[in-house]
Design a protein around this nucleic acid. Structure first.
Lengths: 345, 345
DNA sequence: GTGAAAGCGCTAACAT
DNA sequence: ATGTTAGCGCTTTCAC
């Protein structure tokens, strides 16, 4: 590959001059800059980001450590993060945590070794044990995404408790007294919060509430729903804790030949793209993934720019309630794309 | 951040010794290696990938340039690529092409500037004009993914023509004589091939075939189907060219109150996760994204290792036919997860 | 306005 | 078995 020295030689100038014209870091005479630009064009010179980053000790790169697979929001998340980052001149590198503490630590290490200027992390269950302390020690500006954890970093996540409470209350309003909740991976703040929202309403309304462990995975949720709804006295309604598990729940109910909403009413946290296409369309909580992604990047950039408040921020992105038909209630129902009917309080 | 020199000082050895124990590149005496490892542990030293890559002129990094958003396979693709790459000691960096030639060139440039050792590219419509020649000139080992293009690189993509022909023939077999095809983004090889498969059967069977432009986007496909099926003499069946457009097609038919498969039979290339959950379940072509991803990475690694044949390879990943109910035919139908019934020839 | 030179943190001959 | 030294390709003081 052609180097800056090659370009300099061809242009008859010093390498530092080439550097300066390329970066606009000092005034260069017209002819000189012409010569340099010409040499660049003729050689097809391309900067070496590694050398540049090493010399400047800054990579203008952000890292994203998250679970990739079966994260239904992944494409949206990455797209929004990448575009926001790029607009600020940053590029993005990814590492998969698999939502497993060991893999997460590996991912975070790798990103640190790459000297990312900032890091976005969807913390795993035990991030507080290793990954987060490491990041704090290493002094890498970080923002937590999607889930909270006890640490010194900025955090942004959707509102979970009230939203899940609203779903549960909605079922109670429709007359259900026996309701199941399919919970996500145990230990995640999102899971605890959604479960708490469910429990709150169960308590307040004196419902018969049961929590099933869906571990955030489609087949696990399917199996859980299958066994919980197999016997005659099963609950009459179910709240599903996220996107992937909704697929499992729907499959289980179909297998059991339980009709929605007549035999079992179903509502879910997360609003899959196809929520309006199944029969009946799903009543769901829709989270604004792009908003969360954008906010997270903004927070990191503010930290890097030094314009962020000293104290760590914890922000919530408000989701919206999409009232469709799977809840089986008497209220106004829209079968279309799921327009926002009732904002979550 | 603590550097190798810091570690060396603390261990009372030379930096090169530290390098060698960390990389296992030469024999080091027991005590010395102990001392080094101890110093590493005490300082929390982490390698600087930038410096290392610069010195070795190799990054053990692969680049992936593709369209992120509205690529329904994106999460799967990235996950499979990342895990295969990681297993071989490579990490992955991404750049979004937006399926736009200009953005694609920018993406490819960025990855080149990062000195990725190899590049995976889902070529845009005009990749042959700029991006591919650049990569060839720069001598960056590349493999094309998902779509083919006229160039010197290895390529791997799903089989499109026969699969789409099979879908179309399946409708013809069920008695349909007027069939529409919702085509993806014009210019992509995948679009041309799927369209060709459709046309082939139209010709062979003497069907009345019409091609709608869905531009690979949900709303565009929706609008196209909406207008094509609004009037009384509309086709009685439709083949949808991919995942995202299927969502649009389903919405359009619902808006028009056309029942599937009674009023319009529908089959699609691509088998969304929820294909078995809608009513009726979708008859579809299922592509093996992980297989394609894994194969692409393997091809790159073979090139890097020099074990690949000199001539560029063009490989197809065979998709499978999933017979469900939206085709409305009399054949054996499975309402479950869509088990493979008929392999594509 | 431009050049010379030191250095970013590492690797890899080359010594010993 | 270990230390010395010269880069990798760039940025950035410091001179002139």
């Amino acid at each position: 590959m052609v180097t800056m020295a090659d370009v300099a030689r061809l242009a008859g100038v010093n390498a530092s001059t080439v550097s300066h014209v390329l970066n606009g870091t000092r005034t260069v005479s017209g002819p000189t800059r012409e010569a340099v630009l010409d040499a660049v064009a003729r050689t097809g010179y391309r900067q070496n980001t590694l050398a540049r980053s090493l010399a400047r000790s800054s990579t203008t790169t952000l890292g994203l450590a998250s679970r990739f697979v079966s994260n239904p929001h992944f494409a949206d998340l990455v797209t929004s993060i990448e575009s926001t980052a790029r607009r600020a001149g940053y590029s993005l590198v990814l590492a998969d945590t698999h939502d497993d503490p060991a893999q997460e630590l590996r991912a975070v290490h790798e990103l640190a070794d790459r000297r990312v200027d900032g890091l976005l992390l969807a913390p795993s269950v035990h991030a507080v044990d290793e990954a987060l302390p490491f990041l704090a020690r290493a002094g890498i500006p970080t923002v937590l995404l999607d889930r909270f954890a006890d640490c010194v970093f900025d955090q942004v996540a959707p509102e979970n408790t009230d939203a899940t409470a609203l779903l549960t209350a909605h079922l109670a309003d429709a007359g259900h007294t026996s309701v199941a909740f399919v919970a996500g991976l145990a230990g995640l703040s999102s899971t605890s919060e959604r479960t708490a929202g469910f429990h709150r309403v169960v308590r307040e309304r004196g419902l018969d509430g049961v929590v099933l462990d869906g571990r955030s995975e489609t087949p696990v949720a399917e199996a859980a729903v299958l066994s919980a709804f197999a016997s005659p006295g099963h609950p009459t309604a179910v709240v599903v804790g996220n996107n992937s598990m909704t697929v499992g729940a729907l499959r289980a109910l179909r297998t059991l030949r339980l009709r929605i909403p007549d035999d079992v009413a179903l509502v879910c946290y997360d609003d899959p793209e196809w929520a309006d296409l199944v029969d009946p369309p799903l009543t769901a909580i829709h989270q604004d993934v792009p908003a969360m992604a954008t906010r997270a990047v903004t927070m990191i950039l503010e930290r890097l720019a030094g314009t962020a408040p000293a104290a760590p921020r914890r922000e919530r992105i408000r989701p919206t309630f999409r009232h469709r038909a799977s809840c089986g209630c008497a209220g106004p129902v829209r079968h279309d794309r799921g327009e926002l009917l009732t904002p979550v309080p």
